[in-house]
Simulated assay, not measured.
Amino acid sequence: MKKKAGILLSLTLAASTLLGACGKSEETSGGKSEKKESDFKVGMVTDTGGVDDKSFNQSAWEGIKRFGEGNGLKDGKGFKYLQSNVEADYVPNLTKFAESKYDITYAIGYMMMKSTETIADKFPKNNFAIVDTVVEKPNVASIVFNEQDGSFLVGVAAAMTSKTGKIGFIGGTDSPLIRKFEAGFVQGAKAINPNIEINSKFAGDFNKSELGTQLASAMYGQGADIIYHAAGGTGKGVFTEAKNRKKKGENVWVIGVDRDQHDEGLPEDVTLTSMIKRVDIAVEKMSKDVMDGNFPGGKVVKYGFKEEGLDYGKKNLSKDIQAKMEEYKKQILDGTLKVTETLPKQ
Rank of each mutant, 00 (worst) to 15 (best):
T48F: 02
G70T: 02
E117F: 10
Q58M: 11
T46V: 10
Y102A: 10
F79G: 00
A88E: 15
A107C: 11
G78F: 04
T116Y: 02
T105D: 01
N57K: 06
K32F: 15
F67L: 01
A98D: 11
Y81R: 09
E117T: 15
G109W: 01
M113V: 14
M112F: 11
K80W: 03
G76K: 02
K36W: 08
D53Q: 05
E69F: 01
E69L: 12
D75R: 05
D75M: 08
G49W: 02
F123C: 07
Y102P: 09
E69V: 09
M44D: 07
D75A: 14
E34L: 14
T48R: 02
N126G: 04
I64H: 00
K122N: 09
Y90G: 06
E34T: 15
G78E: 04
R66E: 01
L73A: 02
V86K: 14
F67S: 00
K114N: 15
N57W: 06
F97A: 10
P124W: 06
Q58K: 10
A107F: 00
M113T: 15
F123T: 03
K101Y: 08
V86E: 13
A107M: 09
E117C: 09
K125F: 06
I119F: 06
K36C: 08
K77W: 05
P124G: 07
N126I: 01
E99A: 14
T48N: 01
N126D: 12
D52S: 13
F40N: 05
K36F: 10
K35Y: 06
A60S: 11
L82K: 09
D52K: 12
V42I: 15
L94I: 11
Y106Q: 03
E37L: 14
N93W: 11
K101V: 03
L73W: 01
D121H: 07
E99H: 09
A60G: 07
N57G: 13
V42D: 02
S33Q: 14
M111P: 03
